[in-house]
Amino acid sequence: MKEFKGRIVASGTVTAKALVSHGGLNTLASFQKALQFGDKKATCGDQNNPDLYGKQMAGKALCLPTTIGSTTGGLVLYCACSMNRQPACMLFSEPIDSLAAAGAILADVWLDNVQMPVIDSLGEEFLEYVKDDMNITVKEDGTVVVE
């Protein structure tokens, strides 16, 4: 077990299984099937991300360095939350980009009964340590426990 402390972008507590990407998350390509074609498991459709491609993202603790892609990133995250197809939480080793942060914050503020804690700046060691299917617990103070 190891603990990491990061910066809270969207608060909340949750426990979920880890899903790890060592490359940036292209939000539009990754969530396209969930948003356009009714995939309730939010199966990653980004063929350029071999760590995530074809894997279920909904309900997982999504561990990644950063997001990449177009200016639609925040809207995609907000829409995934509004359709209840979001990850359980998003955990970034690097500082989150402003567009992804906007989507997470708007979902947190505007959507009732939707939670997707987002913690960033967890550090490179976090992404080196965490592996798929490890248990992740996010605490209210921004502490992330990896077991």
Rank of each mutant, 00 (worst) to 15 (best):
E3S: 10
K5V: 09
R7C: 02
A10M: 08
S11M: 13
V14W: 06
T15R: 12
T15I: 11
A16C: 10
V20N: 02
S21H: 09
H22M: 15
H22V: 13
G23W: 15
G24L: 11
G24C: 10
N26P: 02
T27I: 11
T27N: 09
L28K: 13
S30F: 02
S30N: 05
L35D: 05
Q36G: 14
Q36L: 13
F37K: 13
G38S: 07
K40F: 12
K41N: 10
A42I: 02
T43S: 03
C44G: 01
P50K: 06
D51P: 06
L52M: 00
G54E: 01
K55R: 11
Q56P: 14
Q56M: 14
A58M: 07
A58F: 04
A58H: 03
G59Y: 04
A61V: 06
L62M: 07
L62T: 01
C63G: 08
C63V: 08
C63M: 05
L64R: 00
P65L: 06
T66L: 13
I68F: 11
I68N: 10
Y78V: 05
C79D: 13
C79K: 10
C81F: 07
C81G: 08
C81A: 12
M83L: 12
P87M: 04
A88D: 03
C89N: 06
C89W: 05
L91P: 05
F92A: 03
F92T: 04
S93P: 06
P95V: 03
I96K: 01
D97F: 04
S98T: 13
S98L: 14
A100G: 07
A100L: 01
G103L: 02
A104F: 04
A104T: 03
L106F: 15
A107T: 11
V109M: 14
W110D: 15
L111N: 02
M116A: 10
P117L: 03
V118H: 06
V118M: 05
D120W: 00
E124G: 11
E125K: 10
E125L: 12
D132L: 06
D132Q: 04
D132T: 04
D132P: 01
M134F: 02
M134W: 01
N135Q: 15
I136M: 07
I136L: 11
V138S: 05
E140M: 13
T143V: 10
T143Q: 05
V144F: 00
V144C: 00
V145A: 09
V146N: 09
E147C: 12
